[in-house]
Nucleic acid binder design. Structure first.
Lengths: 186, 186
DNA sequence: AACTTTGTACAGTTTTTACTGTACGTACTT
DNA sequence: AAGTACGTACAGTAAAAACTGTACAAAGTT
């Protein structure tokens, strides 16, 4: 697990390895909530315990997986801002380490993933509202169609309200207001 | 799309169908954030516009999919509390309709999915902390191992803090406190 | 009690996703 | 300029997930 075997005995190494493995396992598993693969979650766990930034080759060795997989895994985590690329002079390999500010990770996740979902939804909903309103205003629309359209419109309006709320919630996460309501531990 | 063709002309039906389809498409797509399949997302969209609770057979007909798929899809949505089972006397089929309170849906999602993730993580982390503390207290642990263990312990403690925060955030969602910070629209 | 209808378990198939190995472009070294 | 090391694009393969059809248990009807 990337630990120097020279300076301690095999038994101690085993114990640390076992503890880490269990933590990595559960952290990795629950990362599926962020929509990442189990193995990408494990990669994250590996980086979490690494005492220094790691290269793709090192990750591949530890994970017993191809460098290609490490490359794609790391990129996923970069997109989620869960790991950072680190520069170290002298090395021309790319180095990566986890973002240890998990509050930041959490709020970034919403700012990235949820925001774009909310925006695209709102856009489509607004367009649908417009179109329905146009139809309701038209002479040619039958009474029966009016009924259907009005019910749809009401539903869509409700959905819009919800998405606007979600948008504001994401704002509150992005600008840290959320920590007024639910404070961090010191 | 489950609409009675008798009472309006084909053209009107086409228009409504097109509008709904676009909304269903985007709602369904973004439901992948909740970890559900695209087709389950579409099923949700279908139910969203349905003017009455639907049976599995009706869903299958509309979605052009097997009843088995509808059964599993609906169950997924039930687990997420995104649809409700509805009773209607006279019918011995199960009927389902969407939960229109999307605020509720959102907070339930966190209360269900995220809560269990947080709890399992905390449990494992606490256990790891205990074990590390025991090792640090032992005479047999080498200096080098102490260094490693102390660094791990610090990381795990940070993680614990974060999860406790998340736990409180989920509390705030569950009991509606979140709406004090980010109010619903009237 | 025999017959229907309904929902789902299960096995098999198709589709999608994850993963690997090779091949190559870029950039640094000599 | 030739050589080397690095990351990733791409194509192929392995693994996983989604979906279907059949079969059957449970509950209702005749």
């Amino acid at each position: 697990m990337g630990l120097d075997h020279g300076q301690w005995n095999e038994q101690e190494h085993e114990i640390v390895h076992r503890i880490r493995k269990r933590v990595i396992e559960v952290v990795g598993r629950n990362m599926e909530l962020y929509g990442v693969t189990l193995s990408t979650g494990h990669l994250y766990g590996l980086l979490f315990f690494a005492d220094k930034p790691m290269t793709l080759d090192e990750m591949g060795r530890e994970m017993q997986m191809s460098k290609t997989s490490m490359s794609t895994g790391v990129r996923t985590l970069l997109d989620l801002k869960m790991v950072n690329k680190v520069w170290e002079k002298g090395s021309r390999k790319d180095l990566y380490e986890v973002e240890y500010d998990w509050y930041q990770t959490f709020t970034d996740y919403f700012a990235n993933e949820w925001r774009s979902a909310v925006e695209s939804n709102l856009q489509v909903l607004r367009r649908a509202v417009k179109e329905i309103e146009r139809l309701l205003g038209s002479e040619d629309t039958s009474e029966f169609a009016r009924g259907v359209l009005e019910r749809d419109l009401e539903k869509i309006r409700q959905a819009e309200k919800y998405y606007r709320w979600l948008d504001r919630l994401i704002d509150a996460m992005e600008d840290g207001e959320i920590f007024d309501l639910v404070p961090r531990e010191p």
